[in-house]
Design a protein around this nucleic acid. Structure first.
Lengths: 178, 178
DNA sequence: TTGACGGGTTCAGATTTCAAACGCACCCTG
DNA sequence: CAGGGTGCGTTTGAAATCTGAACCCGTCAA
C-alpha cells in the first residue's frame, strides 16, 4: 500500500492519516492553532524547508483543513487559516499534546500549559462518551461495522483479496497448482 | 530539523510526533487497539512491508508504547501488546477516528461504530475541560509557558539559535547587537 | 527429509525528503 | 528607470527512506 492510496482505505484512521499523518503536517497544524498564518512565519518557527512547507500547505488547503485568503492586495499576499474542518482537528492536537505532556515531558515539566477561557482554569483535556459522559478507557470500547464498512470484519477485508500467494511466495516455482 | 531531532524539541507535539508521527505507526496502533498482536497479522491486515513493520514495532517497543511478550515457548514466539503508556494513546486514536468519520466518510457513512461497554451505547468521543467539564473549542483555549518551557514565546525559541545563516543569508551583518 | 509456519533480516532499486539556490511580482529609494 | 528588499514559492541534485522479493532460523508434522 502506498501512502497516496491511504485516502481510499475503508477506515477513518487511514483516511485521516492520509491528511495529517506525517511529521510536518502535525507541526504545521500546531502552529495554526497558535495563530500562525504566514508562510515565512511557519518557516521560521518550524525550521521546515520551503519546498516541504509549500507542499504541506498546498495539501492542507486541498484537504479543506486550511484556506488561503488574501490579507493585502498590493502586492497580493495570502495567509493560511484554519477552516471549520481544520478547527475540528483541535481534539486531535489536544490529545497528542496531552500524551506528550504525560509521557514524554522530563520530570513532568510541561513545555506549555493550556487555559480554558470560559472557566479560567489551567486544564487537561479529557475524552468522554457522548452518551453517558463518563471518561473513556480503551478496554471499555468495542467496535462494530458501520454503514460505510462493507466487509465482515471491522477492518479492511483481508480475505477479499484476489488469489494472491499465501504470504510471500516462498518458492519461485511452487505455486503451479494449489 | 531532522525527524530524529524532533524528540529533543521543547514541545509535546513534536515529541509525540517523533513517536507516532508517521503513516504506518498510527495504523499499527489502530490494529493494536483492535486487539491485533502478532507480526503476521499486522502484516496481513495492513499490507505494510515486513522490514518496515519490524522497524515500527521495534520503535514502538523502544518508546514503551508496546511490549514484546512471549506467548509460547517452543518455538519461542512473541506478540506485541499495548503497555499502559500505549493504552494512553487511545484518546489520540479516538480523536483521529472521529475526525475522519465526521469529515472524510462519504455521505457520513462511517466504516466503524464504537460502543461504550459501561453504558451500552454507540457513542462519539467528546473532549472536555478537566476543570469545568465543558466541551472544548479551539477558540476558547489559550496557551502559556509551562515549567518545561524555557523561552519567552510559547514556541521554540526562534531567536536562540546559533548564528546560522538566517534563511537565505540575505543581509550578512544586520543583527550585530540585538 | 521435506514442507509449512511464525518471525524476522538482507539487499537492490524506486520514492521522498532535504537544503540551497533561483525566479517572480511588487514596493521603496534615488 | 536602475538597484535593493520582501513575500512566496519552484527547481535542482544529494541524502534518507520505503518497497518488493528473497533469504535465514527454529520448530513441528508427515
Amino acid at each position: 500500500m502506498r501512502w497516496r492510496d491511504l485516502g481510499g482505505e475503508e477506515c477513518s484512521v487511514a483516511r485521516t492519516v492520509s491528511v495529517i499523518g506525517d511529521r510536518w503536517t502535525l507541526l504545521v497544524l500546531r502552529e495554526c492553532f497558535l495563530r500562525v498564518r504566514r508562510f515565512e512565519d511557519f518557516q521560521a518557527r518550524l525550521g521546515i524547508t520551503r519546498p516541504l512547507l509549500a507542499a504541506r500547505l498546498r495539501k492542507l488547503v486541498g484537504a479543506g483543513v486550511l484556506e488561503r485568503v488574501a490579507y493585502q492586495e498590493r502586492p497580493l499576499r495570502h495567509e493560511y487559516r484554519l477552516t471549520p474542518r481544520g478547527l475540528d482537528l483541535h481534539p486531535v492536537l489536544m490529545a497528542i499534546v496531552h500524551w506528550g505532556d504525560t509521557h514524554l515531558a522530563p520530570d513532568g515539566r510541561r513545555p506549555l500549559l493550556h487555559r480554558h477561557k470560559p472557566c479560567g482554569h489551567l486544564f487537561d483535556p479529557v475524552m468522554i462518551c457522548s452518551e453517558c459522559a463518563v471518561p473513556l478507557h480503551a478496554r471499555e470500547v468495542t467496535v462494530e461495522p458501520g454503514p460505510g464498512g462493507g466487509s465482515r470484519t471491522p477492518h479492511r477485508a483481508a480475505e477479499a483479496e484476489p488469489p494472491s500467494p499465501r504470504r510471500r511466495a516462498r518458492r519461485p516455482g511452487a505455486t503451479s497448482s494449489g
